[in-house]
Design a protein around this nucleic acid. Structure first.
Lengths: 252, 252
DNA sequence: ATAAACCCTGACGTTGCGTGAGGCTCAAGC
DNA sequence: GCTTGAGCCTCACGCAACGTCAGGGTTTAT
């Protein structure tokens, strides 16, 4: 029934440091402490943390959350209902963003100025003003709409490592894009991207043609690596393997 | 055709200060300046700002956005398509949050413990690596290698799975320790440890000698994995690569 | 021509943690 | 009974992304 920091952290998907922080600012203090000072969180704390995370998801500042939860008339169930309403509002906003993307794509692809400038920003949170104040009044009436929003490597310098990492991600992203656009893995475009990937690999060692092919194979075969690429784009692992094999086969 | 800071700020729903900031860090500098030094934003700037806001909505840090936009092969249309995909992921997550609210309400209103603790946090962004892997795993499931590893994992008991996980960590630790003690990667001791690591891999699939070598390269090459190992011990990624290559070369 | 509304460039403040550092605790294994 | 590794504790400094004056020009409407 009692959770220690790390347990709760993993359960809720927050960092241990965040829990420390919440304790430090009095937002969420554990039910009890062990004799040796360990934080021990009880069931009530779980629910409170859930509330906190909802508010946070809806971008309320932590001190505001503390005030809400601290109010004498705070009603958890009513708050959840309010959260749902706001989440749905946010869902609407995100859908408008998707529509904005489509509109922008249409403009980029076709005629020049079909799109009024303001339509470029339809769906982004407007007016960062604090409308959270009204939150209280709405608690039991109508709900309606509101707005809201590694580097440690021993050998390379920090900046160099950041660069390399960025380039690595960039290359993979570019390959993912190519795949999504339907570019064939044996095409010149894909080969050029693999070439870039190989250049990136050279930051670490000198890959032979054979090794590149082997690496591609690895992306597909090893669950861990596969997961990494599939996370970026479904099918990316195979796409990489094919492209890298094509590169190895070509005289590049 | 030209916008001054406040005009653009209101159009896009950001603060003037934010635009100043974006200028200061080189993320979005206005097309021109008036003789008196006023920032004058042109049409291209509008589109760039839109991209910035999409990335920001998707929680990319500003320096990351700058890198993306600065890539020589950056393709605005492709980026928009990618944004749409990410937005839809986010929509899914928010919908799960709504479901979590309903589930929590049901529990609060009715029976006591119908809800497992972890279900309290379903839909909140999980940052832990474990969750990521699991989520990724749900997305693919469509290839032989994966099915094989899935099958093997599926046959394991909970205890066996825990064991396997523990063994995985233990092997890496042992290797880190060996490295720290100055054990050469080609030494018998290191080879024995690699052997142990390979045995661990066999829990998932049958790795060929070539694959083990490739895997080692991967540890060094891939920033994510590299970071994982470097965190355990600086230099561990290279050490693993060397040891695994030595193992592959040996007749083990 | 004068106020109101905007713009500029510093420069310091704030939020919500990340990231060690230095030291205690606790269960497990030898 | 002693070591050890994982986990916990409390400082304390760091950092991103702006918010918020401060001090001083500029534009424009009346």
């Amino acid at each position: 029934m009692n959770y220690r920091v790390k347990e709760l952290a993993e359960l809720a998907g927050v960092s241990v440091r965040a829990l420390h922080h919440y304790d430090a600012i009095g937002l969420l203090s554990p039910a009890r402490r062990s004799p040796s000072g360990y934080r021990l969180y009880g069931p009530d704390d779980l629910l409170r943390l859930q509330q906190i995370l909802f508010y946070r998801e809806l971008e309320m500042p932590l001190d505001g959350i503390a005030r809400e939860l601290g109010r004498p008339d705070f009603d958890p169930a009513a708050a959840l209902v309010a959260h749902r309403a706001r989440l749905e509002e946010k869902l609407g906003r995100l859908r408008r963003l998707v529509a904005t993307i489509d509109a922008t794509l249409a403009r980029l692809g076709g005629e020049e100025d079909e799109l009024k400038p303001e339509e470029l920003y339809e769906g982004f949170p407007k007016e960062t003003a604090e409308r959270w104040e009204r939150e209280a009044a709405e608690n039991w009436g109508d709900t309606d709409a509101y707005r809201e929003s590694r580097k440690r490597v021993g050998r390379m310098s920090k900046e160099r490592w950041a660069e390399v990492k960025a380039e690595g991600g960039a290359v993979d992203e570019a390959l993912a894009d190519a795949m999504r656009r339907g570019v064939a893995p044996e095409s010149d475009e894909a080969l050029a991207l693999v070439e870039r990937k190989v250049a990136h690999l050279r930051n670490f060692y000198e890959p032979s043609r054979e090794m590149v092919k082997g690496l591609g194979e690895m992306y597909v075969q090893h669950p861990e690596f596969r997961a990494h690429y599939e996370k970026q784009a479904p099918g990316l692992a195979e796409y990489l393997r094919d492209a890298m094999a094509a590169w190895a086969a070509s005289g590049a």
